[in-house]
Design a binder for these strands. Structure first.
Lengths: 294, 294
DNA sequence: GCAATAGTGTCTATCAGACAATATACC
DNA sequence: GGTATATTGTCTGATAGACACTATTGC
């Protein structure tokens, strides 16, 4: 247990006398992509309300990017993990604690923060509309929910020496107090022995830092996971109808789904209750809850 | 474009006079889980060689963890992204450049490095056995390939207030110059409104830092992606038989597969060539290469 | 009764698991 | 010829897409 190194020093002696070198160190932040689903009023008393996917943004009150909208986030402290920093940020911004939280990706582009060297470890959180009431307008900082739209714009494929490069551009639109938009490209370089994917911000109107890229990445992760996990259930209130669940899937995937197939697919993810909707102007619907087993 | 903040300062003035605060900053490193597949000699001239999944480790020549085995890695420099640092590390350790590289996860547990506050952004690289010749024993540092085994040991499920906690323990064994082993647990806490997964090192014999956890995470990612992407093809040489490809899938998944079903499944991932194996002691096999389109 | 949604049935094409049958070099 | 692998065929059950049909409430 007390091996000596080439200077004849034990590990505990080494740690005792260890002084961090003069290497330059980055600041590390967490940035949170917090999603929720809200309901829009319907035209007719009979129609169901429309669902919308929303993300929480905060207007920057100081330089840099003064007045632009940014993801909630902040510096990671020496006594906490990035996970803990994310939980802390989430609680500060929304007041909620127990929600779905997942590390997304660590962004480290040079110059992504004009002030200094900052690496961001990004997270995605899913909040159900029940909890949503708790927050909003709690402290001075201006926070707002923006409706998310993320659609493919264009696709290019270029053949190269030993493979090809495929570039797909997406339009990210965020509608809230203001209308923000950005174009993000995803470039996949496929060669015989390698495959690499890169995200780039092509244009950007109203979002701070590289946050358009982070939001795009989060949406892609969310869309991917919705298909093969029960992740979308974290966007639902305690009780919900299958039609509401389907609407959430549809608004996340930006795609219409077939009712029968959808119900088969989610059958194992939900649990029947004996509750029903009432006064809907049409046939009542059974309420379900998330199925926890397995 | 030149908004003034509450002190009446423009963004460029702000950046001009910006001085990083006295916040403590972490060191950021990249750690690389570099996988390859090698062939073991067969008993009989007729039998095919057995494939093995291997990972590259480096014996630590100084404190802390002197003499233990660690993942290749190093500090991220101020003029590079974590991706670039990973590529640099990979080249330094193996001499190869164009390989599959994917960011895995950012580990930030308190005390994961006994010296100081270090956050590690981990990457997985896949190298094919062709390229493998290039490296090994190039510089003074002792690097070696270890055969990987990662098997479920035990599963527990505990019911709690509003959900359950499922703990699965895995045994990680690494066989190379020495025999290293660790037990890593994956704990999933499922409650009505949240789901969280956590990895923990239960025991650890011979691996430095929290690298057992990183390797476990990498294997799980690799196993997951093998099923629905062409990622495994990055472990293959330029030309290969379908049986060899199947063996790679089997050694990665630690599971036998049915031949007919396997061939149907990978049909679109590979491209026929007119080449065949020779002198095999049995019927020759057609050689395939990675199919690049789509 | 009618509008609007809830919920179920079923046909078909596709695909994975399972197993079998046939094919072919090389010693 | 015999061994060990290569390659294809096919049966079956499960599943997704597509569409249609029936059910039920509140006004």
């Amino acid at each position: 247990m007390s091996l000596l190194d080439k200077d004849g020093i034990t590990e505990s002696e080494f740690l005792e006398q260890y002084r961090p070198g003069d290497y330059e160190r980055p600041s590390v932040t967490t940035d949170m992509v917090i999603f929720t689903v809200t309901e829009e009023e319907a035209d007719s008393y009979r129609k169901l309300p429309e669902k919308e996917l929303r993300v929480l943004l905060i207007r920057r009150g100081g330089h840099p990017f003064l007045g632009k909208w940014a993801l909630p986030g902040g510096f990671v402290r020496p006594d906490e993990t990035t996970d803990q920093a994310a939980v802390r940020e989430l609680r500060e911004e929304t007041g909620v604690g127990e929600v779905y939280l997942e590390q997304l990706y660590t962004f480290s582009d040079i110059g992504r923060d004009p002030r200094t060297w900052v690496i961001s470890c990004s997270y995605m959180a899913l909040i159900n509309s029940d909890k949503l009431e708790l927050k909003s307008g709690d402290d001075a900082s201006e926070a707002a929910w923006f409706k998310v739209s993320y659609r493919p714009l264009q696709e290019q494929k270029e053949l190269i020496e030993d493979g090809y490069i495929k570039t797909r551009k997406y339009e990210l639109e965020l509608n809230g107090e203001e209308k923000l938009s950005a174009i993000v490209s995803r470039t996949t370089t496929v060669k015989t022995t390698s495959t690499a994917t890169e995200y780039e911000i092509v244009s950007n109107d109203g979002l701070a830092f590289d946050h358009a890229k982070i939001i795009a990445y989060a949406i892609e992760r969310l869309r991917g996971k919705v298909n093969y996990t029960d992740i979308a259930l974290h966007l639902m209130p305690k009780y919900f109808t299958l039609t509401e669940l389907q609407q959430v899937y549809e608004v996340v995937l930006d795609k219409e789904l077939l009712k029968a197939a959808f119900r088969r697919k989610v059958a194992d993810l939900v649990e029947e209750t004996d509750l029903y909707t009432e006064n809907a102007g049409h046939r009542p619907s059974r309420l379900y809850q998330r199925h926890l087993e397995d």
